[in-house]
Simulated assay, not measured.
Amino acid sequence: MQPVSILLNVLWILFGGALMAAGWLIAAVIMAITVIGLPWARAAFNIAVYSLLPFGSRAVRRDELTGQSDLGTGALGLIGNLIWFILAGWWLAIGHVVLAIGYAVTIIGIPFAWAHLKLAGIALWPIGKAIVPA
């Protein structure tokens, strides 16, 4: 990880990133406890990791990463993402966009605004994604 990414991640954690990651982690645990939420627990955990350290990382499709299709990148993943989008994805993305606008008002907050926009993108359609170093 680049020194600038490390610095931005430390600042991100201090200014709210740890709380966001904790929220996503709690959501992942709650989803894992329920039988119905199991398909979305992995996606919520991926978002938790991504929201803890968004700088120097990016979300990619798992089939592009591994070269093999799996349940999350096939038809079941599409159905899961549609259900996620309807039930949770759109309002989580709106929350990230609103926070991004708030951070973008200041020059110092622009990198954090960009991170929120990346999180908004994965919050819309998380199933079948993996977090990799940029």
Rank of each mutant, 00 (worst) to 15 (best):
I94A: 15
A43Y: 02
A18Y: 15
L87K: 04
R42L: 02
A120T: 09
W91K: 05
N81K: 07
A93V: 11
P126K: 11
Y50S: 05
V98Q: 05
L7G: 08
H96V: 14
V29H: 02
R42W: 01
N46W: 14
A22G: 08
T106H: 01
T66C: 04
V49E: 12
P111Q: 14
A28F: 15
L92V: 04
L19Q: 09
A41M: 07
L7F: 13
Y50A: 05
G102D: 01
L19H: 10
I108T: 04
L14D: 03
F15L: 14
A27Q: 03
L76R: 14
I26N: 10
I107F: 06
L14E: 04
G77K: 15
I107K: 03
A123Y: 12
P3D: 10
V132W: 10
G23H: 15
A41W: 05
R62I: 05
G109N: 09
A44K: 11
F55W: 06
W40V: 07
A28D: 03
L82D: 00
M31L: 11
F112L: 15
I94N: 07
A93N: 12
A104E: 01
N81C: 05
G56C: 11
L8Y: 13
I94G: 09
M20C: 13
G128C: 11
L8T: 11
A100N: 07
A28E: 08
S69R: 02
G95K: 15
N81L: 11
L65P: 09
S57K: 15
T66G: 03
G95D: 12
A115V: 06
A123V: 03
V97H: 07
I131D: 09
F45I: 14
I127C: 14
F15E: 00
A22Y: 14
P111H: 11
G80F: 04
G95S: 12
L14C: 09
L38K: 03
L87S: 04
V29Q: 02
V60F: 03
W12R: 15
W40Q: 01
T66L: 10
V35N: 02
A123P: 01
A43E: 04
A93C: 08
N9W: 12
G102W: 13
G121W: 04
T34R: 06
M20V: 09
V10A: 12
I79M: 07
I30P: 08
V10E: 10
L87Q: 05
A41G: 01
I79E: 04
L38V: 12
A59E: 02
G121Q: 04
I79K: 00
A88D: 02
A104T: 02
G89F: 13
W114F: 13
W84T: 09
L52G: 01
A134D: 09
Y103C: 03
I83R: 01
A43S: 13
I79Q: 03
I6Q: 12
I122K: 10
N46A: 10
I83K: 02
I83F: 09
W12V: 08
G67W: 13
L65N: 08
R61Y: 06
F85A: 05
G72S: 09
T66Y: 01
F112Y: 12
G95H: 14
T73V: 14
L7A: 14
A22L: 13
I108V: 12
G109H: 07
W91I: 03
A88E: 04
L53T: 06
I101H: 06
H96F: 08
T34D: 01
